[in-house]
């Protein structure tokens, strides 16, 4: 049985933990609102971008000179896995669920005898992957010191990825991130980045035999458009990721605050009981002492 003093200290310490988790929850809630706005206002652009790329790709399909970013290298021997996570922890299973998805994919690919390289965005993912895939990590993008996701910075990241693709360092790139669905649901997602997947599903809407005139011609437009489409994919994925991170942190901290509250209640009961027990014991001692006289 811990002494009264120990119990009291324990309760105090849990109380201050609760204060911290409560504060973190509120900070996350404020940041979430901003991140969510950013993610939502970036969506129209990526939707339009996707539609435009699909249209162009259809027009350019079959042409021999179609860019490789669209057609692929014709092999799938070597893969680049881009794992986007957060810079900070204390956000529930946010980081580990993304890493888990990437790890499973990496193991599958390695078992199939493919070459796997990894690029990490965000410190947490790197730390978790380092143990198993140390030799395969080819690069790291540091997001710390960036208050919000900056398009300009992401442009450089995407340009690097495209550059190494052009140099034939990999055949396929997949981006792992967490899609923001609601504050409490984030879906770890694997998205194929290169070659650009050309969806067939929106055929009924936009195709319908619309032939575009291109100015300048298709090829030139594609060369300009595709890097931007890739950049935008990475950018919007990171925005979603940022919103997911804050959402995950908020609910994790909410849980922690609630757990701390429960613990305080329990400890308080134990504390009161042992205080009462001590009082009763003293009373008995006094009474029996008086009787003995």
């Amino acid at each position: 049985m811990p002494s009264l003093k120990d119990l009291k200290l324990r309760i105090e310490s849990v109380k201050s933990t609760r204060k911290i988790t409560k504060a973190m929850q509120m900070v996350a809630a404020a940041k979430l609102r901003r991140a969510q706005n950013a993610a939502v206002s970036a969506r129209p652009y990526s939707q339009h971008m996707r539609a435009v790329v699909a249209n162009l790709a259809r027009a350019a399909a079959g042409a021999e000179s179609a860019p490789r970013v669209l057609t692929g290298t014709g092999s799938d021997k070597s893969h680049l896995l881009i794992v986007a996570t957060a810079e900070r922890g204390l956000c529930g299973s946010f980081n580990s669920s993304i890493v888990k998805l990437a790890r499973i994919r990496a193991r599958e690919l390695i078992a199939d005898g493919k070459t796997v390289r990894m690029l990490t965005i965000g410190r947490k993912g790197r730390e978790q992957l380092q143990r198993e895939f140390e030799s395969r990590l080819v690069g790291h993008v540091d997001l710390s010191g960036m208050k919000s996701i900056e398009y300009r910075r992401i442009k450089e990241v995407a340009a690097d990825i495209l550059n190494s693709y052009d140099q034939g360092e990999f055949d396929q790139a997949t981006l792992f991130y967490s899609r923001f669905k609601t504050v409490i649901t984030q879906i770890p997602t694997a998205m194929q980045l290169i070659p650009i997947p050309v969806g067939e599903e929106d055929d009924d809407e936009s195709a319908g035999g619309v032939f575009y005139e291109f100015e300048p011609d298709e090829q030139e437009l594609l060369i300009e458009l595709l890097p931007r489409a890739i950049t935008n994919q990475v950018y919007s994925a990171l925005l979603e990721n940022a919103a997911s991170e804050q959402g995950a942190r908020m609910s994790a901290m909410d849980n922690a605050t609630r757990n701390a509250g429960e613990m305080i209640d329990k400890l308080t009961i134990v504390y009161n009981r042992s205080r009462q027990a001590a009082i009763t014991k003293e009373l008995i001692e006094i009474i029996s002492g008086a009787e003995a006289l």
Partner: peptide, 19 residues
């Protein structure tokens, strides 16, 4: 302001893509 020159698009314009 297109790369190949300015233009004005009005309803029923032919389908077109430009930088």
């Amino acid at each position: 302001p297109g790369t190949e020159g300015d233009m004005t698009a009005m309803p029923q314009h032919a389908a077109l893509m430009t930088s």
